[in-house]
Design a protein around this nucleic acid. Structure first.
Lengths: 236, 236
DNA sequence: GTCTATACACAGATAGAC
DNA sequence: GTCTATCTGTGTATAGAC
Protein backbone atom coordinates (compact mmCIF):
# COMPACT_ATOMS: atom_id res chain seq x y z
CA UNK A 1 0.00 0.00 0.00
CA UNK A 2 1.28 3.46 -0.90
CA UNK A 3 -0.32 6.87 -0.38
CA UNK A 4 -2.15 6.87 -3.69
CA UNK A 5 -3.79 3.51 -2.94
CA UNK A 6 -4.74 4.74 0.49
CA UNK A 7 -6.51 7.84 -0.83
CA UNK A 8 -8.78 5.78 -3.05
CA UNK A 9 -9.59 3.30 -0.34
CA UNK A 10 -11.00 5.68 2.22
CA UNK A 11 -13.17 8.10 0.24
CA UNK A 12 -16.47 6.40 1.07
CA UNK A 13 -15.43 5.76 4.68
CA UNK A 14 -14.84 9.46 5.17
CA UNK A 15 -18.26 10.38 3.83
CA UNK A 16 -19.92 7.84 6.13
CA UNK A 17 -18.27 9.28 9.19
CA UNK A 18 -19.27 12.80 8.17
CA UNK A 19 -22.91 11.70 8.10
CA UNK A 20 -22.45 10.20 11.58
CA UNK A 21 -21.16 13.53 12.84
CA UNK A 22 -24.19 15.34 11.43
CA UNK A 23 -26.50 12.81 13.00
CA UNK A 24 -24.82 13.13 16.38
CA UNK A 25 -25.28 16.89 16.42
CA UNK A 26 -28.82 17.00 15.02
CA UNK A 27 -30.23 18.37 18.27
CA UNK A 28 -28.08 21.50 18.24
CA UNK A 29 -28.24 22.20 14.49
CA UNK A 30 -31.20 24.39 13.53
CA UNK A 31 -31.23 23.42 9.86
CA UNK A 32 -33.29 20.33 9.05
CA UNK A 33 -32.30 19.09 5.60
CA UNK A 34 -29.31 16.73 5.78
CA UNK A 35 -27.97 17.69 2.36
CA UNK A 36 -27.88 21.36 3.34
CA UNK A 37 -26.17 20.63 6.61
CA UNK A 38 -23.49 18.52 4.98
CA UNK A 39 -22.81 21.05 2.26
CA UNK A 40 -22.46 23.98 4.62
CA UNK A 41 -20.85 22.24 7.56
CA UNK A 42 -18.09 21.05 5.29
CA UNK A 43 -17.48 24.64 4.18
CA UNK A 44 -17.51 25.78 7.80
CA UNK A 45 -15.08 23.07 8.90
CA UNK A 46 -12.70 23.77 6.04
CA UNK A 47 -12.71 27.50 6.62
CA UNK A 48 -12.21 27.01 10.35
CA UNK A 49 -9.17 24.85 9.75
CA UNK A 50 -7.68 27.25 7.24
CA UNK A 51 -8.14 30.38 9.33
CA UNK A 52 -7.29 28.78 12.68
CA UNK A 53 -4.11 27.22 11.40
CA UNK A 54 -3.05 30.62 10.17
CA UNK A 55 -3.70 32.60 13.34
CA UNK A 56 -5.24 30.35 15.97
CA UNK A 57 -8.83 29.39 16.71
CA UNK A 58 -9.26 32.00 19.40
CA UNK A 59 -8.00 34.73 17.11
CA UNK A 60 -10.42 33.71 14.37
CA UNK A 61 -13.47 35.95 14.62
CA UNK A 62 -16.95 34.92 13.55
CA UNK A 63 -16.66 37.58 10.88
CA UNK A 64 -13.53 35.88 9.56
CA UNK A 65 -15.36 32.59 9.52
CA UNK A 66 -18.38 34.10 7.77
CA UNK A 67 -16.18 35.45 5.02
CA UNK A 68 -14.20 32.22 4.74
CA UNK A 69 -17.18 29.91 4.65
CA UNK A 70 -19.40 32.04 2.43
CA UNK A 71 -22.19 32.20 4.99
CA UNK A 72 -23.24 35.31 6.88
CA UNK A 73 -22.13 36.03 10.39
CA UNK A 74 -25.61 35.38 11.77
CA UNK A 75 -26.29 32.43 9.50
CA UNK A 76 -23.45 30.45 11.04
CA UNK A 77 -25.37 30.10 14.27
CA UNK A 78 -27.82 27.79 12.54
CA UNK A 79 -25.03 25.17 12.49
CA UNK A 80 -23.70 25.46 16.02
CA UNK A 81 -24.87 27.29 19.17
CA UNK A 82 -21.49 28.95 19.84
CA UNK A 83 -17.89 29.07 18.86
CA UNK A 84 -16.89 26.58 21.56
CA UNK A 85 -19.30 24.03 20.15
CA UNK A 86 -17.81 24.40 16.71
CA UNK A 87 -14.42 23.59 18.20
CA UNK A 88 -15.78 20.52 19.94
CA UNK A 89 -17.62 19.25 16.85
CA UNK A 90 -14.59 19.60 14.64
CA UNK A 91 -12.32 17.87 17.13
CA UNK A 92 -14.71 14.99 17.71
CA UNK A 93 -15.33 14.48 14.02
CA UNK A 94 -11.67 14.30 13.15
CA UNK A 95 -10.88 11.97 16.01
CA UNK A 96 -13.57 9.58 14.90
CA UNK A 97 -12.22 9.48 11.34
CA UNK A 98 -8.71 8.79 12.57
CA UNK A 99 -9.56 6.14 15.11
CA UNK A 100 -11.95 4.27 12.87
CA UNK A 101 -9.62 4.09 9.87
CA UNK A 102 -6.43 3.48 11.82
CA UNK A 103 -7.71 0.51 13.80
CA UNK A 104 -9.57 -0.94 10.81
CA UNK A 105 -6.45 -1.00 8.65
CA UNK A 106 -4.17 -2.39 11.34
CA UNK A 107 -6.57 -5.21 12.15
CA UNK A 108 -6.37 -6.47 8.56
CA UNK A 109 -2.87 -7.76 9.27
CA UNK A 110 -1.94 -10.90 11.12
CA UNK A 111 1.79 -10.75 11.96
CA UNK A 112 3.24 -8.01 14.13
CA UNK A 113 5.86 -6.79 11.68
CA UNK A 114 3.13 -6.05 9.14
CA UNK A 115 0.93 -4.56 11.82
CA UNK A 116 3.66 -2.18 12.85
CA UNK A 117 4.29 -1.12 9.27
CA UNK A 118 0.61 -0.66 8.56
CA UNK A 119 0.09 1.36 11.71
CA UNK A 120 2.95 3.67 10.77
CA UNK A 121 1.86 4.06 7.17
CA UNK A 122 -1.83 4.50 7.92
CA UNK A 123 -1.17 7.14 10.55
CA UNK A 124 1.19 8.96 8.25
CA UNK A 125 -1.17 8.80 5.27
CA UNK A 126 -4.09 9.98 7.37
CA UNK A 127 -2.10 12.94 8.62
CA UNK A 128 -1.11 13.72 5.03
CA UNK A 129 -4.69 13.61 3.78
CA UNK A 130 -6.07 15.52 6.75
CA UNK A 131 -3.04 17.62 7.55
CA UNK A 132 -5.04 20.77 8.44
CA UNK A 133 -7.15 18.84 10.91
CA UNK A 134 -4.18 17.13 12.56
CA UNK A 135 -2.36 20.40 12.99
CA UNK A 136 -5.47 22.09 14.29
CA UNK A 137 -6.23 19.30 16.70
CA UNK A 138 -2.72 19.37 18.13
CA UNK A 139 -2.66 23.12 18.59
CA UNK A 140 -6.17 23.61 19.93
CA UNK A 141 -6.62 20.65 22.25
CA UNK A 142 -5.53 22.74 25.20
CA UNK A 143 -8.46 25.09 24.53
CA UNK A 144 -10.96 22.33 25.11
CA UNK A 145 -12.56 22.26 28.52
CA UNK A 146 -13.36 19.54 31.00
CA UNK A 147 -14.64 16.27 29.58
CA UNK A 148 -13.75 17.14 25.97
CA UNK A 149 -10.16 17.63 26.97
CA UNK A 150 -10.15 14.23 28.62
CA UNK A 151 -11.56 12.64 25.48
CA UNK A 152 -8.73 14.13 23.47
CA UNK A 153 -6.14 12.79 25.89
CA UNK A 154 -7.79 9.39 25.98
CA UNK A 155 -7.71 9.23 22.20
CA UNK A 156 -4.03 10.12 22.15
CA UNK A 157 -3.28 7.40 24.68
CA UNK A 158 -5.29 4.85 22.69
CA UNK A 159 -3.19 5.51 19.61
CA UNK A 160 -0.03 5.18 21.62
CA UNK A 161 -1.28 1.95 23.14
CA UNK A 162 -1.91 0.58 19.66
CA UNK A 163 1.80 0.93 18.94
CA UNK A 164 2.90 -0.26 22.37
CA UNK A 165 0.79 -3.41 22.09
CA UNK A 166 2.21 -4.30 18.70
CA UNK A 167 5.75 -3.88 20.02
CA UNK A 168 4.96 -5.94 23.10
CA UNK A 169 3.38 -8.79 21.15
CA UNK A 170 6.19 -8.76 18.63
CA UNK A 171 8.67 -9.13 21.45
CA UNK A 172 6.71 -11.99 22.97
CA UNK A 173 6.73 -13.69 19.58
CA UNK A 174 10.49 -13.28 19.37
CA UNK A 175 10.33 -10.95 16.36
CA UNK A 176 11.71 -7.87 18.11
CA UNK A 177 14.56 -7.13 20.49
CA UNK A 178 13.66 -6.25 24.06
CA UNK A 179 12.95 -2.51 24.27
CA UNK A 180 10.59 -0.56 26.51
CA UNK A 181 7.30 -0.81 24.56
CA UNK A 182 5.73 2.34 25.96
CA UNK A 183 8.73 4.55 25.33
CA UNK A 184 9.17 3.04 21.89
CA UNK A 185 5.54 3.83 21.13
CA UNK A 186 5.97 7.39 22.40
CA UNK A 187 8.94 7.88 20.13
CA UNK A 188 7.18 6.50 17.08
CA UNK A 189 4.27 8.80 17.75
CA UNK A 190 6.45 11.86 18.09
CA UNK A 191 8.15 11.08 14.78
CA UNK A 192 4.77 10.71 13.10
CA UNK A 193 3.66 14.01 14.56
CA UNK A 194 6.58 15.78 13.00
CA UNK A 195 5.11 15.10 9.59
CA UNK A 196 2.03 17.23 10.13
CA UNK A 197 3.40 19.73 12.61
CA UNK A 198 6.48 20.72 10.63
CA UNK A 199 5.29 20.08 7.15
CA UNK A 200 6.99 23.12 5.65
CA UNK A 201 10.32 21.53 6.54
CA UNK A 202 9.60 18.45 4.45
CA UNK A 203 8.07 20.25 1.48
CA UNK A 204 11.06 22.55 1.42
CA UNK A 205 13.28 19.48 1.12
CA UNK A 206 11.02 17.70 -1.37
CA UNK A 207 10.49 14.65 0.79
CA UNK A 208 7.36 12.72 -0.17
CA UNK A 209 5.12 11.01 2.31
CA UNK A 210 6.16 7.62 0.93
CA UNK A 211 9.85 8.42 1.37
CA UNK A 212 9.24 9.53 4.92
CA UNK A 213 7.26 6.36 5.60
CA UNK A 214 10.15 4.22 4.41
CA UNK A 215 12.60 6.14 6.55
CA UNK A 216 10.55 5.81 9.71
CA UNK A 217 9.98 2.13 9.16
CA UNK A 218 13.70 1.60 8.66
CA UNK A 219 14.42 3.60 11.79
CA UNK A 220 12.00 1.65 13.93
CA UNK A 221 12.93 -1.74 12.55
CA UNK A 222 16.62 -1.18 13.10
CA UNK A 223 15.89 -0.21 16.68
CA UNK A 224 13.67 -3.23 17.24
CA UNK A 225 16.19 -5.50 15.53
CA UNK A 226 13.83 -6.90 12.94
CA UNK A 227 15.94 -9.42 11.05
CA UNK A 228 16.92 -8.81 7.43
CA UNK A 229 15.42 -12.15 6.43
CA UNK A 230 12.08 -11.12 7.88
CA UNK A 231 12.30 -7.79 6.08
CA UNK A 232 13.02 -9.31 2.67
CA UNK A 233 10.35 -11.97 3.18
CA UNK A 234 7.80 -9.19 3.59
CA UNK A 235 8.94 -7.03 0.65
CA UNK A 236 5.72 -6.44 -1.32
CA UNK B 1 26.78 15.14 33.35
CA UNK B 2 23.30 14.56 34.71
CA UNK B 3 20.39 16.98 35.15
CA UNK B 4 21.40 18.04 38.63
CA UNK B 5 24.94 18.95 37.49
CA UNK B 6 23.50 20.86 34.58
CA UNK B 7 21.24 23.00 36.75
CA UNK B 8 24.14 24.20 38.84
CA UNK B 9 26.32 24.93 35.86
CA UNK B 10 24.02 27.36 34.09
CA UNK B 11 22.65 29.61 36.83
CA UNK B 12 25.05 32.49 36.21
CA UNK B 13 24.82 32.10 32.43
CA UNK B 14 21.06 32.52 32.60
CA UNK B 15 21.34 35.72 34.63
CA UNK B 16 23.85 37.14 32.15
CA UNK B 17 21.56 36.55 29.22
CA UNK B 18 18.65 38.15 31.07
CA UNK B 19 20.71 41.30 31.49
CA UNK B 20 21.48 41.22 27.77
CA UNK B 21 17.77 41.06 27.00
CA UNK B 22 17.10 44.08 29.20
CA UNK B 23 19.92 45.99 27.54
CA UNK B 24 18.64 45.17 24.08
CA UNK B 25 15.18 46.53 24.87
CA UNK B 26 16.24 49.62 26.80
CA UNK B 27 14.86 51.95 24.15
CA UNK B 28 11.31 50.66 24.46
CA UNK B 29 11.25 50.22 28.25
CA UNK B 30 10.13 53.36 30.07
CA UNK B 31 11.62 52.39 33.43
CA UNK B 32 15.23 53.42 33.91
CA UNK B 33 16.66 51.47 36.86
CA UNK B 34 18.05 48.11 35.75
CA UNK B 35 17.30 46.38 39.04
CA UNK B 36 13.64 47.38 38.82
CA UNK B 37 13.36 46.24 35.23
CA UNK B 38 14.87 42.85 35.97
CA UNK B 39 12.69 42.28 38.99
CA UNK B 40 9.45 43.14 37.24
CA UNK B 41 10.22 41.79 33.80
CA UNK B 42 10.92 38.42 35.33
CA UNK B 43 7.52 38.50 37.02
CA UNK B 44 5.90 39.54 33.75
CA UNK B 45 7.62 36.79 31.76
CA UNK B 46 6.73 34.13 34.31
CA UNK B 47 3.11 35.17 34.48
CA UNK B 48 2.87 35.34 30.69
CA UNK B 49 4.16 31.79 30.38
CA UNK B 50 1.85 30.48 33.05
CA UNK B 51 -1.31 32.10 31.73
CA UNK B 52 -0.53 31.58 28.03
CA UNK B 53 0.28 27.93 28.46
CA UNK B 54 -3.06 27.51 30.17
CA UNK B 55 -5.24 29.25 27.59
CA UNK B 56 -3.06 30.69 24.84
CA UNK B 57 -1.29 34.02 24.50
CA UNK B 58 -4.07 35.59 22.47
CA UNK B 59 -6.67 34.62 25.04
CA UNK B 60 -4.60 36.12 27.87
CA UNK B 61 -5.92 39.61 28.54
CA UNK B 62 -3.79 42.43 29.89
CA UNK B 63 -5.99 42.30 32.97
CA UNK B 64 -5.09 38.63 33.43
CA UNK B 65 -1.45 39.52 33.11
CA UNK B 66 -1.77 42.39 35.57
CA UNK B 67 -3.23 40.09 38.16
CA UNK B 68 -0.69 37.36 37.47
CA UNK B 69 2.36 39.59 37.56
CA UNK B 70 1.27 41.77 40.48
CA UNK B 71 1.51 44.98 38.48
CA UNK B 72 -1.43 47.11 37.42
CA UNK B 73 -2.96 46.97 33.99
CA UNK B 74 -1.59 50.39 33.08
CA UNK B 75 1.75 49.85 34.79
CA UNK B 76 2.60 46.98 32.48
CA UNK B 77 2.99 49.38 29.58
CA UNK B 78 6.13 50.78 31.18
CA UNK B 79 7.83 47.48 30.27
CA UNK B 80 6.68 47.02 26.70
CA UNK B 81 4.81 49.20 24.19
CA UNK B 82 2.18 46.57 23.37
CA UNK B 83 1.20 42.98 23.76
CA UNK B 84 2.88 41.97 20.50
CA UNK B 85 6.19 43.33 21.74
CA UNK B 86 5.94 41.30 24.91
CA UNK B 87 5.54 38.19 22.78
CA UNK B 88 8.56 39.10 20.69
CA UNK B 89 10.75 39.90 23.71
CA UNK B 90 9.90 36.68 25.45
CA UNK B 91 10.54 34.60 22.34
CA UNK B 92 13.85 36.28 21.57
CA UNK B 93 15.06 36.00 25.14
CA UNK B 94 14.36 32.29 25.38
CA UNK B 95 15.92 31.58 22.01
CA UNK B 96 19.09 33.33 23.04
CA UNK B 97 19.37 31.30 26.24
CA UNK B 98 18.86 28.04 24.37
CA UNK B 99 21.23 28.74 21.49
CA UNK B 100 23.99 30.10 23.66
CA UNK B 101 24.00 27.25 26.15
CA UNK B 102 23.41 24.46 23.66
CA UNK B 103 26.26 25.40 21.34
CA UNK B 104 28.61 26.21 24.23
CA UNK B 105 28.15 22.78 25.80
CA UNK B 106 28.45 20.84 22.56
CA UNK B 107 31.65 22.62 21.60
CA UNK B 108 33.33 21.41 24.77
CA UNK B 109 33.51 17.91 23.27
CA UNK B 110 35.95 16.68 20.70
CA UNK B 111 34.67 13.36 19.31
CA UNK B 112 31.33 13.07 17.54
CA UNK B 113 29.85 10.35 19.73
CA UNK B 114 30.30 12.60 22.78
CA UNK B 115 29.04 15.61 20.84
CA UNK B 116 25.89 13.78 19.91
CA UNK B 117 25.26 12.70 23.48
CA UNK B 118 25.94 16.15 24.84
CA UNK B 119 23.65 17.77 22.28
CA UNK B 120 20.82 15.42 23.21
CA UNK B 121 21.31 15.81 26.95
CA UNK B 122 21.77 19.56 26.89
CA UNK B 123 18.68 20.11 24.77
CA UNK B 124 16.67 17.83 26.99
CA UNK B 125 17.92 19.42 30.22
CA UNK B 126 17.26 22.90 28.88
CA UNK B 127 13.72 21.97 27.97
CA UNK B 128 13.25 20.49 31.43
CA UNK B 129 14.55 23.59 33.19
CA UNK B 130 12.64 25.97 30.93
CA UNK B 131 9.68 23.78 30.10
CA UNK B 132 7.11 26.60 30.17
CA UNK B 133 9.15 28.65 27.74
CA UNK B 134 9.70 25.76 25.34
CA UNK B 135 6.04 24.91 25.29
CA UNK B 136 5.07 28.54 24.85
CA UNK B 137 7.57 29.07 22.07
CA UNK B 138 6.33 26.06 20.17
CA UNK B 139 2.68 27.00 20.47
CA UNK B 140 2.97 30.71 19.80
CA UNK B 141 5.55 30.88 17.02
CA UNK B 142 2.82 30.96 14.42
CA UNK B 143 1.48 34.15 16.01
CA UNK B 144 4.69 35.98 15.29
CA UNK B 145 4.65 38.18 12.23
CA UNK B 146 7.08 38.78 9.39
CA UNK B 147 10.76 38.94 10.32
CA UNK B 148 10.24 37.57 13.83
CA UNK B 149 8.64 34.47 12.43
CA UNK B 150 11.61 33.99 10.16
CA UNK B 151 13.98 34.31 13.10
CA UNK B 152 12.12 31.57 14.89
CA UNK B 153 12.30 29.28 11.87
CA UNK B 154 15.96 30.06 11.38
CA UNK B 155 16.67 29.17 14.98
CA UNK B 156 14.84 25.88 14.63
CA UNK B 157 16.84 25.04 11.52
CA UNK B 158 20.09 25.94 13.24
CA UNK B 159 19.39 23.46 16.01
CA UNK B 160 18.53 20.79 13.51
CA UNK B 161 21.70 21.55 11.58
CA UNK B 162 23.71 21.10 14.77
CA UNK B 163 22.49 17.52 14.96
CA UNK B 164 22.80 16.89 11.22
CA UNK B 165 26.40 18.10 11.20
CA UNK B 166 27.39 15.84 14.05
CA UNK B 167 25.83 12.86 12.31
CA UNK B 168 27.53 13.76 9.04
CA UNK B 169 30.96 14.18 10.59
CA UNK B 170 30.57 11.00 12.59
CA UNK B 171 29.82 9.14 9.39
CA UNK B 172 32.83 10.66 7.65
CA UNK B 173 34.96 9.54 10.59
CA UNK B 174 33.60 6.02 10.27
CA UNK B 175 31.90 6.10 13.67
CA UNK B 176 28.31 5.87 12.40
CA UNK B 177 26.49 3.82 9.79
CA UNK B 178 25.32 5.62 6.66
CA UNK B 179 21.92 7.21 7.34
CA UNK B 180 20.37 10.36 5.95
CA UNK B 181 21.78 13.04 8.29
CA UNK B 182 18.98 15.55 7.82
CA UNK B 183 16.18 13.09 8.40
CA UNK B 184 18.04 11.63 11.36
CA UNK B 185 18.38 15.10 12.83
CA UNK B 186 14.70 15.81 12.24
CA UNK B 187 13.77 12.63 14.06
CA UNK B 188 16.03 13.35 17.02
CA UNK B 189 14.53 16.80 17.30
CA UNK B 190 10.97 15.52 17.24
CA UNK B 191 11.76 13.06 20.01
CA UNK B 192 13.29 15.83 22.09
CA UNK B 193 10.22 17.97 21.53
CA UNK B 194 7.99 15.30 22.92
CA UNK B 195 9.56 15.84 26.32
CA UNK B 196 8.29 19.38 26.73
CA UNK B 197 5.16 19.19 24.61
CA UNK B 198 3.70 16.08 26.22
CA UNK B 199 5.17 16.37 29.65
CA UNK B 200 2.07 15.14 31.43
CA UNK B 201 2.56 11.77 29.74
CA UNK B 202 5.99 11.31 31.26
CA UNK B 203 5.15 12.59 34.72
CA UNK B 204 2.16 10.28 34.78
CA UNK B 205 4.53 7.38 34.12
CA UNK B 206 7.20 8.58 36.51
CA UNK B 207 9.91 8.80 33.89
CA UNK B 208 12.73 11.12 34.93
CA UNK B 209 14.57 13.36 32.53
CA UNK B 210 17.73 11.30 33.02
CA UNK B 211 15.92 8.08 32.18
CA UNK B 212 14.48 9.62 29.05
CA UNK B 213 17.93 10.90 28.07
CA UNK B 214 19.36 7.40 28.34
CA UNK B 215 16.56 5.95 26.26
CA UNK B 216 16.92 8.49 23.46
CA UNK B 217 20.67 8.03 23.36
CA UNK B 218 20.25 4.29 23.14
CA UNK B 219 17.68 4.69 20.39
CA UNK B 220 19.84 6.98 18.31
CA UNK B 221 23.04 5.02 18.82
CA UNK B 222 21.43 1.75 17.83
CA UNK B 223 20.13 3.41 14.68
CA UNK B 224 23.51 4.92 13.87
CA UNK B 225 25.25 1.65 14.66
CA UNK B 226 27.61 3.05 17.26
CA UNK B 227 29.73 0.08 18.24
CA UNK B 228 29.44 -1.45 21.68
CA UNK B 229 33.19 -1.02 22.22
CA UNK B 230 32.86 2.70 21.56
CA UNK B 231 29.93 2.89 23.92
CA UNK B 232 31.69 1.15 26.79
CA UNK B 233 34.85 3.19 26.19
CA UNK B 234 32.80 6.33 26.77
CA UNK B 235 30.92 5.16 29.87
CA UNK B 236 31.59 7.98 32.37
C1' DG C 1 -32.70 28.94 5.68
C1' DT C 2 -30.20 33.03 5.35
C1' DC C 3 -29.61 37.76 5.60
C1' DT C 4 -28.67 42.71 7.88
C1' DA C 5 -28.58 45.39 11.82
C1' DT C 6 -27.53 45.80 16.35
C1' DA C 7 -26.96 44.78 21.50
C1' DC C 8 -23.71 44.54 24.90
C1' DA C 9 -19.36 42.65 26.91
C1' DC C 10 -14.62 42.92 26.99
C1' DA C 11 -10.30 43.69 24.70
C1' DG C 12 -5.88 46.77 24.34
C1' DA C 13 -4.16 51.00 25.22
C1' DT C 14 -3.74 55.93 27.19
C1' DA C 15 -4.23 60.07 30.47
C1' DG C 16 -3.31 62.06 34.37
C1' DA C 17 -3.19 61.72 39.57
C1' DC C 18 0.01 60.44 43.10
C1' DG D 1 7.41 54.22 38.78
C1' DT D 2 2.86 52.83 39.49
C1' DC D 3 -1.83 53.45 40.05
C1' DT D 4 -7.09 54.23 38.74
C1' DA D 5 -10.25 55.69 35.47
C1' DT D 6 -11.57 55.76 30.95
C1' DC D 7 -11.48 55.85 25.67
C1' DT D 8 -12.33 53.29 21.60
C1' DG D 9 -12.30 49.23 18.77
C1' DT D 10 -13.67 44.57 18.16
C1' DG D 11 -15.62 40.35 19.84
C1' DT D 12 -19.76 36.97 20.24
C1' DA D 13 -24.32 36.43 19.84
C1' DT D 14 -29.29 37.68 18.90
C1' DA D 15 -33.60 39.86 16.70
C1' DG D 16 -36.33 40.30 13.16
C1' DA D 17 -36.85 41.06 7.99
C1' DC D 18 -37.16 38.39 3.83
Amino acid sequence: MNYSDFRNMIQTLKADIFRQTVEQNRDIILVTKEQTIIRNLEKIFDATLEISNEKGFHAMSMRDLAKGSGLSSGGLYAYFPGKKDLLRMLQEHGRKVVQEILFKFVDQNTDDVSKLRTAIKTHLYLSELMQPWFYFSYMETKNLSGPERENAIESEMATEKLFADIVQRGQDAGLFETRDPQLTAAIIKSILQDWYLKRWKFSRRNISVDQYAEFIIQFVEVFLGVHETEISRLKN
